[in-house]
């Protein structure tokens, strides 16, 4: 028994639609003969067979789209008898189209992902003893955390860091401040707005004032501005 499977006909072909059988059951086929036409989504392509045989059962109906590797038909090997050959369940016609047969095993080489998954950074849980940085090194503190701690008058050295490399993050500062203010820990205060502590310097070419705006005046707000206003009021 020869299985005639839908081959992959291009680097980007995962499935194909059977357009035509070029032979019918009982026909003799020769190695290299085109036996079906398949639409690969790019074009209709003749599909050849790689062994001599006799077309036996055509399992996939015209018009069906099936994954690469699907058995499209079975063929009898030279000398094999139709009477004793095993029969396969044919795929129903499209319309009441049943799930396509599974792709034959071993279609693609089994290789793991090319890159190992990144190692999760070690996280120090809040409340754990704060490791002193090695001499000569600063504790990593995110700029946002440092600014927030300054606003809150919080000693950054007393805040445990949970960020990458044990860095003190904004959330660490917020949590530390909440622990300090509320003896019975209530709901944590809402996170502070993600505001930059100060405007970072950004070199910007001096721009000429647009010429048309000879009389700078109040202009109707843009849609986006109106939108922002509305949501601020809610």
């Amino acid at each position: 028994m020869i299985e005639f499977k839908l081959p992959s006909l291009g680097a980007d072909m995962d499935e194909g639609k059977l357009l035509e059988w070029m032979v019918k059951p009982g026909d003799l086929v020769k190695r290299g003969q085109a036996v079906a036409v398949v639409d690969t989504a790019k074009a209709a392509v003749d599909v050849e067979i790689w062994q001599d045989g006799t077309m036996f059962e055509q399992l996939v109906p015209i018009g069906a789209t099936v994954p690469v590797g699907t058995v499209l038909a079975t063929l009898l090997e030279p000398g094999e008898s139709a009477a004793t050959a095993p029969r396969r369940a044919a795929m129903p016609l499209p319309g009441g189209q049943a799930p396509a047969p599974a792709v034959a095993a071993g279609m693609a080489p089994a290789i793991g992902p090319a890159v190992a998954p990144p190692v999760a950074p070690t996280v120090t849980p809040t409340g754990a003893p704060i490791a002193a940085p090695p001499p000569g090194q600063r504790r990593p503190v995110s700029p946002a955390a440092r600014a927030r701690a300054q606003e809150l008058g919080l000693d950054i050295d007393g805040v445990a860091g949970t960020g990458p490399h044990g860095a003190v993050t904004l959330a660490d500062v917020v949590l530390a401040a909440a622990v300090r203010t509320a003896a019975p820990v209530a709901d944590p205060p809402p996170p502070p707005p993600l505001r930059r502590p100060h405007r970072p310097w950004c070199p910007r070419p001096r721009r000429l004032r647009p010429r048309r705006r000879r009389h700078p005046r109040w202009r109707p707000p843009t849609a986006r501005w109106r939108c922002a206003r509305r949501s601020a009021r809610q």
């Binding site: 600063r138 504790r139 990593p140 860095a167 970072p200 310097w201 070419p205």
Partner: peptide, 15 residues
């Protein structure tokens, strides 16, 4: 070297 920085980085390139 993010945590070693004391100011945003800057660059001077061609316009």
């Amino acid at each position: 070297a993010f945590y070693d920085l004391d100011a945003p980085l800057a660059r001077v390139c061609s316009a």
